[in-house]
Write a protein that binds this DNA or RNA. Structure first.
Lengths: 204, 204
DNA sequence: TCGAACTTGAACAGTGCTGTTCGAGTTCGA
DNA sequence: TCGAACTCGAACAGCACTGTTCAAGTTCGA
């Protein structure tokens, strides 16, 4: 689609690749920030709430994002692109798989803080296929890593890679939830997560 | 206003313990069954949809359940009571903890089939505290089991019991999702689940 | 400075629910 | 069989939100 150039387009210079005015750019940013906050507080947040949180008129909000769904989608895209970038920056293919996975856990852990509540919001508001779809890239990278680890003998091979990926992913989210509910500090959760993932993936 | 006495009550003989007429009883059952189906298909299902799926007027639906939330709550209660009953019936305290956990996994696995989609629906429609609240009983039973296992030396003690409970619970749901999305057959998922839980809980 | 880009509130149209009331019909059960 | 329990459709009132239009105003940037 055009989500690469502008899933989030302003009023007039919408479709074309023309440069946007500075205030429009600023508003787009303010809206995205406010929306992230609102959705984190209340997954059902309305466009009116978001607009006023962004210090912007409701009409302006619609000028930037044609629908609630588009806004939430763009928000999720950004978060996942951020994760994907972080993953890519780690050069996970340059170290042994088990070491690389550990690195991956730690780096994604910090991004999670900001994005966990938003992910829950997206799960509520968006059709579940959409949510899964936007995860495919990142999860594919993890699967590749795990498959390599299986080849290297670092990870168990009695279970399919896709299940190991799911396990890791689901445990990360669970650990995040524990922090959110106050049963774990962030540091405790991370170390519990690492220990659990480690023993879940290690060969018997 | 009178919602206190009739959380899930039929029209007239609401609060009192009086026996209800047979047709009222039948309708309640039909509604619950239909609602489970509807919510499974579409978590956003409206009261109108549910009523007609149950072969009942919308007014009648409201006579049995004063609100959408009450209906969903009752549905979830029943599911979790079912699980709790199954757990209790297994007499998990009579066998070694690791063996008991395995039994627990298998028995809850079958109940999951029916209830997984409904749980997802509840998570979307109900405030998350409500959902967690209704889980406490069952999860407490599991935690007790795991704690005993730690005392017996069957489970690792380097991680707190509550985290192990969370891990198990979250892995069960993940396995259910894998079946739903077609990446696993039910049997494959169960055996992967068992293997993963096993190695996640075993002492190092 | 001047026009185009952008923002704004008010107001509107439309939708799709929720929950209630009513008067009348149907079914149970003693 | 008879009254109470229960059901029914229609219709109503109300709400909250979505997305659009308009006729202003304001702000950027060349």
């Amino acid at each position: 689609m055009e989500s690469d150039q502008r899933a989030a387009a302003p009023t007039r210079r919408a479709g074309s690749g023309q440069p946007r005015r500075a205030d429009a750019e600023r508003n787009t940013a303010a809206i995205l920030a406010a929306a992230a906050g609102c959705f984190a507080r209340d997954p059902q947040a309305s466009m009116t709430e978001i607009a006023s949180a962004a210090g912007v008129g409701r009409v302006t909000l619609y000028a930037h994002f044609p629908s609630r769904e588009a806004l939430l989608g763009e928000l999720m895209d950004r978060a996942l692109r951020e994760v994907a970038a972080a993953v890519a920056a780690q050069h996970l293919d340059r170290s042994p798989a088990d070491r690389a996975l550990r690195t991956l856990l730690r780096s994604s852990w910090h991004l999670l803080d900001r994005n966990l509540r938003m992910l829950h919001a997206a799960r509520r508001a968006l059709p579940s296929e959409t949510v899964e779809e936007r995860h495919t890239d990142v999860l594919a990278a993890v699967e590749q890593l795990i498959t390599r680890g299986q080849d290297e003998g670092a990870f168990r091979t009695d279970l399919p890679a896709h299940w190991l990926v799911t396990s890791v992913y689901t445990l990360i989210l669970a650990a995040g939830d524990q922090v959110e509910s106050g049963r774990f500090s962030s540091a405790e959760a991370l170390s519990a997560l690492e220990a659990t993932v480690d023993s879940a993936l290690r060969p018997a």
